[in-house]
Each structure stands twice: as C-alpha cells, then as structure tokens.
C-alpha cells in the first residue's frame, strides 16, 4: 500500500482538467522517490464514481491516503496550497524524506 493515494476527478479534456493533470504530475516529478498512487476519473465516462464520491466541481483532487481524506477543488495551479494540503510539505509521515520542509520550499522558489 502506498503512503499517498489520490483520485483526480476531471471532466473530459477541458482546459482546467488538463491543467490539473499537468500540474499534479509536475509536483510529483519533483519528488522522484515518492511512493504514490493516482487514479484519474473522467466524470463524463464514469459519472457513477462522481456520484459515489459526491463530487460537485471539476477538477477535484481527493487525497484518500493518508487519512483524513481531503479535497482540493480547482486546476491545482496554486502550488503552495496544493503542497500543503496533500502533505508534500507537512510534517507527517507522508513527507518525502529527502526533502525537508524549508529545503523543499526554497527549491520551489
């Protein structure tokens, strides 16, 4: 079981949906050792999954692991918010070992 698990709900190939996928992939690429699992759900193809997870907006990123689950609505262009929310910058177990907080943030800038 990976330490990080995500579901990204997008709608078709809209600008915002593509941006969300691109942004997320770019963030993960900065942590090559990161053990994560990402499932991309297109609500046009799988509306039932959107129903189950009660998704209102697209794109929506759901952090399934670690608990508690969290949601980020939007195309994930707000890097700081995204990193903080999904645990890439936080102090818990999900934090990538080779990238301490301050170092990670300086690296961003």
């Amino acid at each position: 079981m990976p330490t990080l698990a995500f579901e990204l709900f997008v709608m078709g190939r809209t600008r915002q949906s593509l941006a969300a996928i691109r942004n997320l992939r770019a963030y993960f690429a900065e942590f090559p050792d990161l053990d994560y699992e990402l499932t991309i759900v297109d609500v046009l193809e799988q509306p039932d999954r959107a129903e189950e997870s009660r998704i209102l907006a697209t794109p929506t990123l759901v952090r399934l692991m670690p608990l508690p689950s969290l949601r980020i609505i939007g195309d994930l262009s707000e890097k700081e918010i995204v990193w903080q929310t999904i645990g890439l910058l936080s102090d818990d177990s999900a934090r990538p070992g080779s990238h301490p907080n301050d170092e990670g943030s300086s690296h961003d800038r």
Binding site: V43, G74, S77
Partner: peptide
C-alpha cells in the same frame, strides 16, 4: 458533508455536477 475538508486550489467549474445530473 462535514467529513472532508475542502480547499480551493485553482480554477474550476461545476462540470461534475452536470455530469451527475445528466447521468
């Protein structure tokens, strides 16, 4: 729902809602 904490991290629309309604 009170379960999941939700933050806004960029631009979005209500496409998922529309997809669920159409479904």
């Amino acid at each position: 729902q009170l379960t999941d904490e939700t933050v806004i991290g960029g631009e979005y629309d209500l496409g998922a809602l529309l997809a669920r309604m159409e479904n």
